[in-house]
């Protein structure tokens, strides 16, 4: 059976060649995807001699940006014209900072058990991505002082290899600790939060006011949000 180039592109998005760092190939037009691959190989050829990977990385990031480019003919349902704004009420050096990420982190022993499944693997989360996209997210509480080796991550929507190497790439607790220790911020909330952002958008919109209430209970002054 002959595979078309479009089928090849699409296979990177939860298909036979699934690769969450390159699933954007599904959305790139054929000509752009072909040119990306040609230039990628050209740069690999350069790397044989130069050892310089910078051009490869920049090329891949540019292609990713192109792959996620909004389609002007299909505006997002979640478009708003208003811009909520709450001013700072006190200096950051006196503020308690909260953290909420959509990276899918949780604490060992506190598995959110999506669909009731304990110890779901990253691969199973990827395989069940369409179910995640229909369900409400579960917000995990991560104690600020949890040892780093007790942090877990699972998210069917992105390449978690980087965060497994260093959780701070998407759950920047160490950067917050440095900012606190230097006096840049006053304190860090004892309860940090994460959830897998690949989730039903209508459901999270319904949950957002409850989550806002949780932030007030924690008496945080500002919140750092880190989407993946």
């Amino acid at each position: 059976m002959t595979e078309s180039f479009a089928e090849f592109r699409e296979s990177f998005s939860y298909g036979t060649r699934s690769d969450l760092s390159f699933k954007f190939l599904k959305s790139l037009p054929d000509a752009e995807a072909a040119e990306f691959l040609r230039r990628l190989l050209e740069e690999v050829g350069e790397t044989y001699d130069t050892g310089d990977i910078a051009a490869i990385i920049d090329l891949a990031i540019d292609a990713q940006i192109a792959g996620y480019r909004p389609d002007p003919d299909r505006p997002s349902r979640w478009t708003y014209t208003d811009r909520p704004f709450a001013p700072l009420t006190k200096p950051l050096a006196e503020s308690r900072v909260g953290l909420l990420t959509s990276s899918g982190h949780f604490a060992e022993g506190d598995d959110p058990k999506p669909f009731g499944v304990p110890n779901m693997t990253q691969q199973e989360a990827e395989d069940r991505i369409s179910e995640f996209l229909r369900e409400a997210p579960i917000l995990s509480v991560i104690p600020r002082d949890l040892p780093a080796n007790k942090l877990r991550v699972r998210h069917g929507g992105y390449d978690t290899r980087s965060t497994l190497r260093d959780h701070n790439v998407s759950f920047p607790r160490d950067a917050l600790l440095s900012a606190r220790d230097s006096g840049r911020i006053g304190d860090i909330s004892e309860r940090l939060y994460s959830f897998p952002g690949a989730t039903a958008q209508g459901r999270i919109k319904q949950l957002a006011p409850d989550w806002a209430g949780q932030m007030h209970e924690d008496e945080i002054d500002v919140l750092l949000l880190v989407p993946v």
Binding site: A86, L88, A208, P209, A212, I220, D221, L223, L224
Partner: peptide, 11 residues
Amino acid sequence: DIEASGIPTTA
């Protein structure tokens, strides 16, 4: 929602 509830956010 969190911003509208009065807590400044940065993302």
